[in-house]
Every structure is written in structure tokens, then in C-alpha cells.
């Protein structure tokens, strides 16, 4: 049940506990209990809307920054990762295998703002060896959702 519950919510977080209860054939109070449990233990971290900001007049740029590090004794990369993810403009930080160590997703109003962040905040952090910044030109698909595409029911009424 837990896996199915999470999958349904991952797909549509606005389903009510009533709907979830019917769809999963599980009493409503059990769904509620399970949800508070999953929220309390940090499995469900939040409920957010998927927004295509390109449809609005909000100005913003997104960049992915490859960061190479020299690991710190005893603490690996965790401390540096924490230092980076504490900046509010940082949307995501991943520890990567391969050519670099951290992948940092950052959002800013302008390219200049992102450049300033890299030069003034990121690069000076001790143990960062190098950074490579890639600006996102267009988002096609994110978290399983295709952007800039509105679903039209093209099915013929045939039978």
C-alpha cells in the first residue's frame, strides 16, 4: 500500500485522502495515519506544484554547475555540500560519480546574478578545485512532466 500511495501522490499531490482511500481500497483513517507517518519520518518532504515559468513573465535563469572538490579529512564531501546547499538560490545538490563531484542546480534572475554567485560565493569555498557552469536554455521535461505541452484528447469516439 505504501508504495502505491507514494506513487499516486508523486503523480498528483492534490488527491484527497478520501480519493486515495477509494482508489487504494484502504480505510480513510489508515491513509491519514500512513501519511502523517510518512511526513514525520521524512519520506514525504512536501507537496509542490509543477510550474512552467516560461508561461509567465517572470525573468529567471537556471544553471547546472559541475564542481570538483578535494575531499576533507574524515568528512568526505558532506560538509562542503552542506555549505553549498544552504544558499537559498541553490535548488539542488547531487553527489556525482565520474568526472566531477557535485552537481549544483542554481536559479537566478539573470545570468549576471548566477555568474556573481559562482565567482563570489562558490569558487572561494576552500577545497573547491574547479567549477564549470552550464546554463539551461530550455526545459523539455522535469520530474516526469513534459513542459510546454498541453494534453488534448485525440481519441476518436469510435466504439
Amino acid at each position: 500500500m505504501e508504495k502505491n500511495l507514494l506513487k499516486l501522490l508523486e503523480d498528483d499531490a492534490r488527491l484527497s485522502t478520501e480519493q486515495l482511500s477509494v482508489m487504494l481500497d484502504t480505510p480513510k483513517n489508515e491513509i491519514e495515519k500512513k501519511l502523517s507517518e510518512l511526513e514525520a519520518n521524512g519520506t514525504i518532504l512536501g507537496y509542490k506544484a509543477m510550474i512552467d515559468w516560461e508561461k509567465t513573465d517572470r525573468e529567471y535563469v537556471t544553471a547546472m554547475i559541475d564542481v570538483k572538490l578535494s575531499p576533507q579529512r574524515d568528512r568526505g564531501f558532506d560538509k562542503i555540500a552542506e555549505k553549498i546547499f544552504n544558499y537559498p538560490e541553490v535548488q539542488a545538490v547531487y553527489l556525482m560519480s565520474g568526472a566531477y563531484d557535485l552537481s549544483v542546480l542554481i536559479e537566478g534572475k539573470t545570468m549576471k546574478e548566477v555568474a556573481y554567485f559562482v565567482a563570489q560565493k562558490l569558487a572561494p569555498i576552500e577545497s573547491i578545485i574547479s567549477t564549470a557552469t552550464h546554463f539551461v536554455l530550455h526545459k523539455y521535461k522535469d520530474k516526469g512532466v513534459v513542459y510546454g505541452y498541453s494534453e488534448v484528447d485525440e481519441r476518436g469516439n469510435c466504439n
Binding site: D153, R155, G156, N157, C158, N159
Partner: peptide, 16 residues
């Protein structure tokens, strides 16, 4: 149905 707009249809006999 053909010429109507904004209809919420539950008519189709095929998967979505």
C-alpha cells in the same frame, strides 16, 4: 457530441 465544446466526456471506448 461533434459540435459541442467544453464537454466532459466519459464516452470513449479506448485506453487513454
Amino acid at each position: 457530441l461533434e459540435n459541442m465544446h467544453d464537454v466532459v466526456a466519459l464516452t470513449v471506448g479506448q485506453p487513454d
